[in-house]
């Protein structure tokens, strides 16, 4: 009882250890704090590894084929169902997902919690038809034969 008393009375004359948060500036989080997700769509290759590895399934991908065969892919992260375990950031080979140290994830509307990004994924070159394959093959042999003849000639 007595030690508490002296501590309490001592505190009266000491400045209180309270952060002036709503009034003062927002204190920074720890250096490697896993906060709000930042998504760099340009470096993403839509491999889907992050979605496979995410426990709460908080990503959604919409693929929208464009006329020239490309795909317009938007990937949205729903922060309200994310546990900020940063598995996606670790597994992303292209480092396009990064967890910043912004912890102030407060919002009134659902949209405040969606982080999304879209990119155009180039279509792969068109598949070769069988005739084109045969034609290419023939051209290759002709080139090879010509090269062999040339070696024989200057041999």
């Amino acid at each position: 009882m007595i030690p508490y008393l002296t501590k309490a009375l001592g505190n009266l004359f000491r400045a209180p250890a309270t952060e002036k948060f709503p009034k003062g500036e927002t204190p920074k989080a720890a250096p490697s704090y896993r906060g709000r997700i930042i998504y760099h769509p340009e470096s993403c290759i839509n491999c889907g590894l992050c979605m496979r590895v995410c426990a709460p399934q908080c990503m959604e991908r919409t693929i929208e084929p464009l006329p020239n065969g490309d795909q317009k892919i938007t990937l949205t992260f729903d922060l309200t169902s994310c546990t900020f375990c940063s598995m996606c950031a670790d597994f992303c080979s292209r480092h396009s997902i990064e967890l910043s140290d912004d912890y102030m994830i407060v919002g009134t509307k659902p949209e405040d919690f969606l982080v999304s990004g879209t990119f155009i994924k180039k279509a792969p070159p068109p598949k070769l038809t069988p005739e084109q394959i045969a034609e290419l093959k023939a051209k290759a042999e002709a080139a090879k034969a010509a090269k062999a003849a040339a070696e024989k000639a200057d041999g």
Partner: peptide, 11 residues
């Protein structure tokens, strides 16, 4: 206020 100050907070 006094109780808060004794508990080292602003109150």
């Amino acid at each position: 206020k006094l109780v808060a100050r004794m508990q080292n907070r602003v109150g």
